[in-house]
Design a protein around this nucleic acid. Sequence first.
DNA 1: TGCGAATCTACGAATATTCTAATATAACGA
DNA 2: TCGTTATATTAGAATATTCGTAGATTCGCA
Lengths: 134, 134
Amino acid sequence: MIESEESPAVAELLKAFSHPTRLMILQELLAGPKCVTDMEDLLTARQANISQHLAVLRYARLVDYAQDGALRCYYLARPQLVRDMLALVGRDDPVVKRTPEAIKAEKERLNKAQQTQATHKPAKNRGRRDKAKR
Amino acid sequence: MIESEESPAVAELLKAFSHPTRLMILQELLAGPKCVTDMEDLLTARQANISQHLAVLRYARLVDYAQDGALRCYYLARPQLVRDMLALVGRDDPVVKRTPEAIKAEKERLNKAQQTQATHKPAKNRGRRDKAKR
DNA sequence: TGCGAATCTACGAATATTCTAATATAACGA
DNA sequence: TCGTTATATTAGAATATTCGTAGATTCGCA
């Protein structure tokens, strides 16, 4: 359950993932630590650009680096998160299609459950739609 | 394993998730189908804006709708994907910190494993760094 | 100390995203 | 048909992202 106050932070994290080059970087790092030059060979992009993307990933706390002389060896700061994310988006989920009838039925069902439980606002109809029914 | 040709498509999908309002919409839809007006009540955003975000989600095949008279009941087209994504980003993963020594050790290990397996390019060092050592 | 390699940052142009206001469209009921 | 409700689309301004070029930084070494 994501609270509305934290939803911007979550969106930020997802944004860090949302770029082809950054995705490739994360995938490379899944295989083991790499320095920027390694990535340059692997990733049709200029060094400066890779550095910029790494800065984004660092800010999102997805990667970090260990300095080794002149080299910076980047590694995944949250490897399990990255692994699961790549698996999730690589997955091929079935797309469901629902009929208006099925939807209506589900709404009824939800309404009923909500009323018996009396959680939160029963909210039969409010706002604009109240006026509509006058 | 995400191939580089599909990484733009994957990035697109992630971008669809990467907005606070869209995240909230998806979360609401997890509880059941809703029409735009329902969301308007729930989501401090104007109707036009919600419609725009729904268009993005529709294009990403994350949602679809069933028409019910003048209403459009939106629902999740890939509920499991959305459920798993929200769980994943809501999760609190430990952030690992690694020393230069540990990194160096891992690189050695990976190199060794790679050589015995003789997968792909052994790639001791190439490109710019070859010249460097001359 | 000075050089070259590895990497980062600053800046600006091109492009994309987001939001609002206004308008368009579609369905329903009187 | 007309008015009203629900929703979508358009247009434009504000903002953010992306990428290249150029110039800084930092490190190890001769």
